[in-house]
Nucleic acid binder design. Structure first.
Lengths: 221, 221
DNA sequence: ACCTTAACCTACCAAGCGGTAGAGAATCGA
DNA sequence: TCGATTCTCTACCGCTTGGTAGGTTAAGGT
């Protein structure tokens, strides 16, 4: 009923979703299996029937996230054509992927903190290949004089990606630090989302400005 | 013997240091009191004599970090004079503060993930005031045409700071993603530190390039 | 009808957790 | 010398944790 072959909403997927949500929000160690079970509406041993251990569940959650990512990535690498377009398509896609469900960003960040070595290996496998491709693309832009000469391609890319992930993961923390400009007492949820958008758009602007040389001295964006 | 008044290396400080280290590395929930106690070389109840509960210890750790920060900050805000110098002084100081002990960055990031609301309040108190000052300073630079007009001052500042903190916190994860350029089999620790430096320097370059307008079209930095 | 298998349950366990009780050393002013 | 205070310890408690044992239900093939 969902996508291709299986038509069950599938207990395993429900568990995976609940675990993703809770691991992202409270962390792996901070989330008892009982919490996941009760969110799914099932008994704890039923969880351990589908996933043999808590660690197996952790790996399934992370694996699912990376699989989703690896599935989305290629098509958007192929999508845009020119340099500027490709840049924007990529950045917007990464932003979209993580804002669609900020738990993805939080989960990733948590895992980077909890298991640096494991994530290092995973990244070496999952991001290293197309990091090289993109870096070459940047170097081409440098030779053509469109991109800052002093820029370190690999470092730039990793910084941008990490900034997006990390920025989205904790964006809610910063929302109250902005002085309310003109809107005063709108409802809190809407204004918070507006501030997150403001935060993210500045992030994109920074990524752009620190990548491309200005054609002339511009005055807007 | 240390600084001003107390001459003891002080059990409380030892506990605080061990807790900082372990909370940063394994997280609050992932760190039993027994681990902290054994790192200090003392029994668990001795810990709870100095800090009445685990949560009290958490707050002491975080408070100590912020106090240290609040102490270091003002002098470097007053240190530099011109815009460009002030910018570099500030960024370098932040980088120095967190690279000196990356646990500070990890701890901060973990707390942002674990207790967003609490950190929001803390930041509103600790960073909001001088965020306004720096933002005004940026707006001045915008009026003078030295700084990008499309830049959002508060968002820029928060992004930069957060990028530095977060980037240092998980920098070890990225080190293996760089292709080894010319050095081949130097010892691993030195090359890892070199890569971290490369990572951080690109971060600084990005912060610079996305803040200041280029005077003319430059070719380096 | 029957057996098998998958899926889920209640009941339970050993281990580890944060925290307490209370007894012994060490320090120190009187 | 003597309490009083400060600090640290061993022993323990109640509770939660990840995980297991084993029974129960329902579907499905033959």
């Amino acid at each position: 009923m969902t996508s291709t072959q299986t038509d069950t909403p599938s207990m395993q997927q429900q568990i995976l979703a609940a675990a993703t949500h809770l691991f992202a929000a409270r962390g792996f160690e901070g989330t008892p299996l009982s919490a996941i079970a009760s969110e799914v509406g099932v008994a704890k041993p039923s969880l351990l029937y589908h996933y043999p251990s808590k660690d197996a569940l952790r790996e399934a959650v992370l694996g699912n996230l990376l699989a989703h990512w690896s599935e989305v990535l290629p098509e958007l690498l192929m999508a845009a054509t020119t340099g500027g377009q490709r840049f924007h398509a990529l950045v917007e896609a990464i932003v979209a992927f993580f804002t669609e469900d900020p738990n993805r960003a939080r989960l990733l960040l948590r895992e980077m903190l909890d298991r640096p070595e494991a994530l290092r290996d995973l990244f070496a496998e999952h991001v290293s290949p197309w990091l090289g491709v993109l870096a070459e693309y940047i170097r081409l832009g440098q030779r053509e004089g469109r991109i800052w000469a002093g820029l370190d391609p690999e470092a730039y890319l990793l910084n941008i990606i990490h900034q997006i992930v990390s920025g989205i993961a904790v964006s809610e923390v910063f929302t109250d630090l902005y002085p309310a400009p003109d809107e005063d007492n709108k409802d809190a949820r809407a204004s918070r989302r507006a501030l997150q958008k403001r935060h993210i758009e500045e992030m994109i602007r920074m990524a752009h400005a620190s990548l491309f040389l200005p054609r002339s001295l511009p005055e807007k964006k």
